[in-house]
């Protein structure tokens, strides 16, 4: 597959804060690429440079062979942006919102009418097309927000955390829409801090932390970076921080984290290490009330690479 989006050595600072440092990755035609990282990792800054909203301090963005930047009209035509925050006009109807952006992208009359109707159908708002967007539910607004991004049939659709603050039903509908886009041949760049979304949607995933792309690959490749490790989850009663500290020094444990009352450990092999882990916790003011051993996932990869959880 040929590259639709290429980012090379992207850097961007805001004052003393280095928001993005040397990020390079590419997205192929028809590929869904997930940019996964916690809040403040630099995902939105990357998106802003890729969408031509910000000039990078260093590095280069190319979309369909054209250099991207704030004045790159041709490259912008190939990109659709779905911002993290709702970017719709609440006093216009869904049809009027779509019609406005279609005109802004220069769609001719026939194509504009066709695309507005098609997008209304895709986002399930045909029946409410004439109602003001301000009267919609949160999920409907989110769907309209996505619809505007795909309206002009861009080659690359950028979705910046599109499911934040969305109810489970609408979230599922959004994920299904994105899956459909990918099968239609559109390249998708999807940022999220939800591991499940990245695993479900993305062909490849880039893990970003503190402005740096720390790893990328398919799910299998990323999980393979941990090696033959297992995840041991010890549900505790009592001082969970003390329990984590005790587990961290057990031989064979590569990293630990706390999720509410549970200590999460990445362990070389779970079976021979389990007695030592239980003994370590037992020596603290905490007691183990439950044990779970499972295969690692992307979240565990993130923990392994950065030493912290995605939702930190």
């Amino acid at each position: 597959m040929s590259d639709l989006l290429t980012c090379v050595g992207l850097e961007r600072s805001f004052g003393d804060l280095k928001a993005v440092q040397g990020v390079s990755f590419s997205v192929a035609v028809g590929e869904t690429y997930g940019l996964l990282g916690p809040n403040g990792a630099g995902k939105t800054t990357c998106i802003s440079m890729i969408a031509g909203l910000l000039d990078p301090d260093a590095g280069e963005v190319t979309v369909a062979g054209q250099a991207m930047g704030p004045r790159a009209s041709a490259a912008k035509n190939d990109v659709g942006l779905v911002p993290q925050e709702l970017a719709i006009y609440p006093d216009l109807s869904a049809r009027e919102n779509l019609d406005f952006f279609a005109r802004l992208y220069g769609l001719d009359t026939a194509r504009r009418k066709r695309r507005v109707d098609e997008v209304l159908e895709v986002i399930g708002l045909t029946d409410r097309a004439g109602d003001r967007a301000g009267t919609y539910s949160g999920g409907m607004k989110r769907r309209l927000n996505i619809g505007i991004g795909m309206l002009h049939e861009p080659k690359l659709l950028i979705l910046d955390e599109p499911t934040v603050g969305v109810d489970p039903q609408s979230r599922n509908a959004i994920l299904e829409s994105v899956e459909t886009l990918a099968t239609d041949g559109m390249g998708v760049l999807y940022t999220t801090h939800y591991m499940e979304e990245a695993e479900r949607l993305c062909d490849r995933i880039g893990i970003i932390d503190q402005g740096t792309l720390v790893a990328e690959g398919t799910r299998r490749e990323l999980v393979g970076m941990i090696g033959e490790q297992d995840v041991v989850r010890l549900k505790t009663v009592g001082d969970v921080q003390a329990a984590e500290a005790a587990c961290a020094v057990v031989e064979g444990v590569s990293s630990t984290d706390v999720e509410e009352d549970t200590v999460v450990c990445l362990v070389d092999e779970a079976a021979p290490r389990l007695p030592a882990l239980l003994a370590a916790v037992g020596a603290t003011d905490a007691d183990v009330s439950g044990v779970e051993v499972r295969e690692p996932d992307i979240e565990d990869v993130f923990l392994h690479l950065t030493g912290k959880a995605l939702r930190d």
């Binding site: 909203l53 990109v79 942006l81 911002p83 719709i88």
Partner: peptide
């Protein structure tokens, strides 16, 4: 938030 969307247009 619509300014961001306007500026993402060509």
């Amino acid at each position: 938030g619509t300014l961001q969307r306007l500026l993402a247009a060509p």
